[in-house]
Design a protein around this nucleic acid. Structure first.
Lengths: 224, 224
DNA sequence: TCAAAAGTGTTAGATTTACACCCATGA
DNA sequence: TCATGGGTGTAAATCTAACACTTTTGA
């Protein structure tokens, strides 16, 4: 049990970039840092990796602690470990990004933790290297969203095609042609049209769609 | 200086997946582990992150220690941190992959460190989760090599188009059409034909090409 | 009646893929 | 002379991108 004693240990933390989608905007969940150093600065939500827990588990614990939700989509962004990154002590942090349907997140719990949904395009300067983490996360997510059906993690179970399109536009940061977009959606049989109609977004109303996971697993060709 | 004392520290290491290219094969530099636990098992080359060194610096130091070379192409693969990943103690490891021209690596130095170039397709079972690291590295590299001119890092300064094609085939793990490949190369003005001819690969001889970094920076549209 | 979002096809251009033969040389 | 790798172009198919009008309804 004493193999590596000549080497020094460091603190390792996880920071989670939690993406949400609301009002056609991509949002990130951030809060004012509650501890020193950096108390009061805008920051991602994070936590330390315990001695007896894996880094993925630590990230899941942290996410659960904040949201009360499990089984969210979460992927590693990478490790951030320059010596000066934390103004207090040497801490290496591993960033993760998670996708959440804003409506699933209990707003009281959100307030208890003093975190807010902030528009991705209006993010303030964040503590330490957290802005870098967000940048890298969105880069990874932009790749993923084109080849894997992760977008549905940001939407309610039932959604209109316009909502889905706005989501892509928000994530990719560019406009999408409506007709070409819908053409591609039609080719994906696992995006199912229901008979339900949403009247909140327009007077005329729009058909609601749902993602059929089983159908996707049988024929997983997603391509946007 | 005592902000995070309630939390526990862990060892953090770096492991480097060093890719090379020789005889139309993609190679990985691995060796027999020289320390306990796992002594004698095939393993990536790695090292511990010091208290006063960033993780990227630690990776560069490790790579330099092994190869005597600096300014190699190196990128982070990700952090690996399940509790049981190291059979001895709790160690979180951050994997990097590096690209090297095999000819640039002094073979005596290689032998001193007891490492070998092993065909990527014939890799043995490696220590701990090192096989996973390699898998993730190649996945990342396959993406990159299609959109950034990193392939030249694996080749001598002068190379034939067939060598370049074989490299792509080795990395992507699939055959490439010769004519279509050369057509695309012709569109990239920063891959310059020289008047030099390589006669080692064929009786007829093949023109040697070089990558013009300056021309690339002026017009960086790489697309394979 | 009009403003606002939903819905719907076609076409030109660009990109991708498949494919086969002649050339130069050294052994 | 022949085996080996070097070098070259075209055509069909597919994919991508651009583009405008009608419908429905609540205010």
């Amino acid at each position: 049990m004493t193999y590596y004693n000549e080497h020094s240990k460091v603190w390792v933390s996880v920071d989670v970039i939690i993406f949400g989608f609301d009002q056609s905007k991509l949002k990130v969940l951030i809060g004012r840092r509650q501890m020193d150093p950096g108390r009061g600065e805008w920051s991602l939500y994070g936590g330390f990796v315990g001695a007896d827990e894996g880094i993925d588990e630590a990230a899941e614990r942290t996410l659960y602690d904040l949201t009360g939700l499990r089984h969210l989509y979460m992927r590693q962004v990478g490790a951030f470990g320059s010596v000066e990154r934390d103004p207090g002590e040497r801490v290496i942090s591993i960033a993760y990004y998670a996708l959440i349907n804003v409506k699933d997140y209990d707003d009281n719990l959100r307030k208890e933790h003093n975190v807010e949904w902030v528009d991705y395009n209006q993010l303030p300067a964040l503590y330490s290297d957290h802005n870098e983490m967000v940048s890298k996360a969105i880069r990874i997510m932009r790749q993923k969203i084109k080849t894997e059906p992760i977008s549905f993690r940001l939407l309610p179970q039932l959604f209109t095609l316009t909502q889905l399109q706005r989501l892509y536009e928000a994530v990719l940061g560019e406009e999408v042609d409506k007709r070409n977009f819908r053409k591609r959606i039609k080719d994906m049989d696992f995006i199912e049209k229901t008979e339900l109609i949403d009247k909140t977004g327009s007077k005329r109303g729009a058909f609601l769609y749902r993602f059929n996971k089983k159908a996707y697993n049988e024929d997983p060709n997603f391509k946007l």
